[in-house]
């Protein structure tokens, strides 16, 4: 446990924050000039630089950034003046409510389809599912997003749902706003997930104990549940766990900016286009902390599932 944190996690955490810091502070636009407004005097710019610690060496600035990050002192947005912590508190629940249904349904659907494909390997159900997966992987996110909007939410299609916007006032409101994005996520992600699950299951199905179970006459689904899935759990858990950080803070830049949903993806997108450095630094820093937590949790889970790893 201690070794994992000391050897793997701390260096990654430092690396991610340093990468983001160097990109945004060293290469990014000069923040003091941007904040100074029109026709600043040299003294005003100089004073702003001192306030932002921009006159200190870059290493000192980086240490201040780390300190701010760990004390959750994230500053205020350059464009709206709103504290970054309150922006995050406002947007994280929206992003989660937007992405969670697609995530859960998508993985269940993919696991189901992949099981069917793997159990009927090289026969028509496998070929059909694989063909659909390739087609799904080939259609761009933006194309699916816009087609579904026209199909389900405009007068040229069914017009069942609102075309854009967001509301979590009631369960029905949430459902009608989350429906089209969820369908988009299902369509876009299922192809990739099916191919992944199928590859994992096929590999496990070729092992000798599975052949023995087949010989003993296990039904297909019992075979899957008893002999295959427990052994396939590690790669599956890895894939699921490592999607969590982007589920929590990544949000979906595309879905949120296109459908006008006030989530983390939307504020991140706005921060990128407006050059809002405090927001970008906070989102990057928090996502790297979440990634570190995920690494620890995944390691714990491995040990809980596979007793060989604790030995």
């Amino acid at each position: 446990m201690f070794n994992l944190i000391a050897i793997r996690i701390v260096p990654v955490l430092l690396g991610v924050t340093a990468l983001g810091f160097v990109l945004m502070v060293s290469f990014g636009p000069d923040r003091a000039l941007e904040l100074a407004g029109r026709n600043p005097t040299a003294e005003e710019v100089e004073q702003l630089r001192r306030q932002l610690y921009d006159d200190r060496p870059i290493v000192v600035q980086y240490v201040y950034y780390l300190k701010d990050l760990f004390t959750l002192n994230l500053g205020r947005s350059d464009s709206t003046g709103e504290p970054v912590t309150s922006m995050l508190a406002r947007t994280v629940p929206n992003s989660l409510a937007l992405l969670l249904p697609g995530f859960v349904l998508g993985h269940l659907l993919a696991l189901l389809l992949a099981s069917v494909a793997a159990l009927h390997r090289n026969r028509w159900p496998d070929r059909l599912i694989n063909g659909c997966a390739v087609l799904g992987m080939s259609i761009s996110f933006v194309v699916v997003m816009m087609s579904f909007q026209v199909l389900f939410a405009s007068r040229y299609g069914f017009g069942w749902f609102p075309a854009r916007g967001w509301s979590m006032d009631s369960f029905g409101q949430w459902l009608s706003h989350v429906a089209v994005p969820t369908l988009v996520i299902l369509f876009v992600a299922t192809g990739y997930n099916v191919r992944f699950y199928r590859a994992v299951l096929v590999e496990e199905l070729e092992r000798e104990h599975v052949r023995t179970c087949r010989m003993l006459g296990y039904a297909r689904w019992r075979l899957l549940a008893v002999a295959v899935l427990p052994n396939a759990a590690l790669p599956i858990i890895t894939r699921l766990m490592y999607s969590i950080p982007s589920l929590l803070v990544g949000g979906s830049l595309l879905l949120e900016s296109y459908f006008g949903i006030p989530g983390v993806g939307k504020i991140t997108f706005d921060a990128i286009t407006n050059g809002d450095q405090p927001v970008l630094k906070a989102v990057l820093g928090i996502s790297s902390v979440l990634m570190a937590i995920t690494m620890v949790l995944t390691d714990r889970l491995y040990r809980a599932i596979d007793p060989r790893l604790t030995a």
Partner: peptide
Amino acid sequence: WLLAVIDAVPFYLLVGALAYA
């Protein structure tokens, strides 16, 4: 280490930070 660092940043955040820079 470099691989772990780059893969720890969500894709659009990495690209966005670079676009900003």
